[in-house]
Computed example of a mutant assay.
Amino acid sequence: MTNQTRRRFLAGAAGVAAGLAGCSSGRRAPPDPVTPSGAEPDRDSPYTAVYDATIESVAFVGTAGGGGGSGFVYDDYVVTNQHVVGDADQVDVRFERGDWREAGVTATDVYADLAVLSTDIPDYARPLSFVDSVPPVGTEVLALGSPFGLESSVSTGIISGKNRALASPSGFSIPNTVQTDAGLDPGNSGGPLVTMDNEVTGIAVAGAGTSVGFAVSPLLARRVLPELIETGTYSHPFLGISLLPVTPIIAEANDLPETRGIYVVEVLDSGPTDQTLRGADGETTVDGRTVPTGGDTLIELAGNAIDSNADLGTTLALELSPGDRVDATVIRDGERVDIRVPIGSRPPPEQ
């Protein structure tokens, strides 16, 4: 029984071998070797030109826990996200040509989600510069980094939106973020979003879907990073209020002439002690919902129209500093009132 089974197997194997050999009983000559072309590959793509000009400034950032993200060279430092490095004092950085470096975490800022790393930067990794202003929606951009640990990757897209307020674990939104449809996957965090002119127009911070990603504003980064590098900290401006966006229900309950602005619900003890904004002191019911009443509706601050929470965050983050006292316009008791409001300093993040 065993010998018959073995004979059948050998016979079948011989048939398969003959089939793979093309049923030829003679020996076939090996195929001719393929000679690599000496011609240079076509590098006329504008995306290739931007990639070649910037990728050596981009690095993989690895942490002791096995996590990783991206970073890039800025002013003789490596910049990445705070959430990439977490509480680490030291991380590993790998540059484009394979050079590994240990990097010290010089400073972090949880509110802007930025971190500065100190290390021995290779000569070929030149610093990248930020744009002077965020380009228009529709501008082509490239996202460089290490998605899923795949170093030196690039994805393309456009600027899909500007001045977005991005929710953050810090309890405060990251203001003025840049929205893009360029692929931002885990591992892209901290990498640059660059224009076709090789300038950084954002620092990748979050992906929210297959075509929605967000980057820290280059304008916010240009404000925060120099202070982090020089002093190790950055003090964010703070009005010291809890607020709600003005919706039709809030506008109806407070007799507002327009559905715009931000509504002051409460003046917080953690804000400046002499805050002139006024919080709600009552409530009413509209369509079965309890709505606060009596608070100020802020519609202008430092000469800027405040139509939304995003407008307030951008004005505070990009134009004001702790200790300032600036003009504001509110709707108070149905009247337009001009006041001066103090700007405090945001309290340290909760541990």
Results as ranks from 00 to 15, higher is better:
Ile121Cys: 00
Ile121His: 01
Ile121Phe: 00
Asp123Tyr: 03
Asp123Pro: 05
Asp123Glu: 14
Asp123Val: 01
Tyr124Phe: 12
Tyr124Gln: 07
Tyr124Arg: 11
Ala125Cys: 06
Arg126His: 10
Arg126Leu: 11
Arg126Val: 13
Pro127Glu: 06
Pro127Met: 06
Pro127Lys: 05
Pro127Val: 04
Leu128Tyr: 02
Ser129Glu: 14
Ser129Gly: 13
Ser129Asn: 13
Ser129His: 11
Phe130Arg: 07
Phe130Glu: 04
Phe130Gly: 07
Val131Glu: 00
Val134Thr: 15
Val134Arg: 07
Pro135Met: 12
Pro135Glu: 12
Pro135Ile: 10
Pro135Ser: 10
Pro135His: 12
Pro136Asn: 08
Pro136Cys: 03
Pro136Lys: 02
Pro136Trp: 04
Val137Ser: 15
Gly138Cys: 03
Thr139Leu: 10
Thr139Phe: 11
Thr139Glu: 14
Glu140Ile: 09
Glu140Met: 13
Glu140Leu: 13
Val141Trp: 08
Leu142Glu: 15
Leu142Met: 14
Leu142Val: 13
Ala143His: 00
Ala143Asn: 03
Leu144Pro: 11
Gly145Tyr: 08
Gly145His: 04
Gly145Met: 03
Gly145Val: 02
Gly145Ala: 01
Ser146Tyr: 04
Ser146Ile: 00
Ser146Val: 02
Pro147Leu: 04
Pro147Tyr: 10
Pro147Trp: 13
Phe148Ala: 06
Phe148Cys: 11
Gly149Asn: 06
Gly149Thr: 10
Leu150Ile: 06
Glu151Asn: 07
Glu151Cys: 15
Ser152Glu: 08
Ser152Phe: 06
Ser153Gly: 10
Ser153Glu: 09
Ser153Asn: 11
Val154Thr: 11
Val154Gly: 08
Val154Ser: 09
Val154Trp: 08
Ser155Phe: 06
Ser155Thr: 09
Ser155Ile: 08
Ser155Val: 07
Ser155Cys: 09
Thr156Trp: 13
Thr156Cys: 08
Thr156Met: 14
Gly157Asn: 07
